[in-house]
Write a protein that binds this DNA or RNA. Sequence first.
DNA 1: CAGTATTCTTACTCGCGAGTAGGTACCAGG
DNA 2: CCTGGTACCTACTCGCGAGTAAGAATACTG
Lengths: 211, 211
Amino acid sequence: MRTEGRAKRLPRAVRERQIMDAAVDVFSRLGFHAASMDEISEVAGISKPMLYAYLGSKDELFATCIRREATRMMEAIATGVEPDQEPDVQLWSGLRAFFGFVGENRASWQVLHRQASNQGGPFAAELTDMRGRAVSLVAALLTQSTKAPATKLEAESLAAALVGAGESLAEWWLDHPEEPAGVVAARLMNLVWMGFGDLVEGNVWHPPSRR
Amino acid sequence: MRTEGRAKRLPRAVRERQIMDAAVDVFSRLGFHAASMDEISEVAGISKPMLYAYLGSKDELFATCIRREATRMMEAIATGVEPDQEPDVQLWSGLRAFFGFVGENRASWQVLHRQASNQGGPFAAELTDMRGRAVSLVAALLTQSTKAPATKLEAESLAAALVGAGESLAEWWLDHPEEPAGVVAARLMNLVWMGFGDLVEGNVWHPPSRR
DNA sequence: CAGTATTCTTACTCGCGAGTAGGTACCAGG
DNA sequence: CCTGGTACCTACTCGCGAGTAAGAATACTG
């Protein structure tokens, strides 16, 4: 008496999605090393050779995961920010979009940040690449401000710091999920735009009153 | 015709140091997973059973590495900061000490940051622990400022962001070694103390003129 | 329904690396 | 020169997990 009969035969495209979802889930929970192809196939509800037939080796699979999730995230952010606004407003909407994405895609975020960042394989390139794009984006934002940082190096390093702060804060957020995304985003916005100096004085940044 | 004769017999304490140095080196270059005990023993100039006799399993060895390097770093920072100064000066000296350490201990830093951060094993605890100590330190610094962040949560999250910014900037620095430590540290100091808002206006932070 | 393409599985191989058994050189002190 | 102890090695075992061979079951097409 099978409870479910036999799993249905599905077209390749659909299976690939299922497998990718399972892979992101397992990689995010266990990390690249501890995740085994056997477990991924089990979670995906198929057998191991399918994995290899459809997605190639473990390294390829992981790289594909990174690429997919990175793209999803960058798109989410790009959608959230309006390019014709003032720099501070752009930054603000970017931060909101970022924390919004992380909040709703814990697994994606963990794969991207925790797992990919240190695995020295060929896939690190994917992650480094996305990170680079994010940094460039922010750097461009900074340079576009009037009396902005003089050297290109300076803008880039500040952007790297900001991106790192965002990543780190997102990580911290995972351990304090009770805080809403907007609050966390606002906090970072205040830090990077006003600085501690102003915060200590009681000066805070707030979005220009719409409407 | 051996070039070097036979390696000398050394007392246990000395060997342990050698092994730890080799382990940090290999772990930092290859990551935890890709690093094999065989390679570590080879770099250390001894044979594998010595590793196990002296430092225990691979996990134990790695945890010991993390602990040693983390301690070294925290001490370096603690030495660099004078506790009776104004908050901004304390932060400044802390940042200088941090970047100074990273600049002179690339391998240590890579083991700490890149490798340990994601390996989900028992040693992640070591790293999380040190990171927590750093965050608490900074959080205390913030709370000690007069009109500082109201909630404990707020201070802690800002501290997490700052620490993340530091880590990220250090990472960026590895790819741009031509910049001196002091410049990088000053940049981060300006970012977190003045904020982009002030930087855009041309207001920069500078240390109170000593002497 | 024959023929063919595609989905999917069971049941392996095989190398790599963690960990070990058992023994050898070297140095004390009596 | 024996006795014991510590530093050190060669040469294994053994499990785990990546990757595969060979074929079974199902769907499409004329």
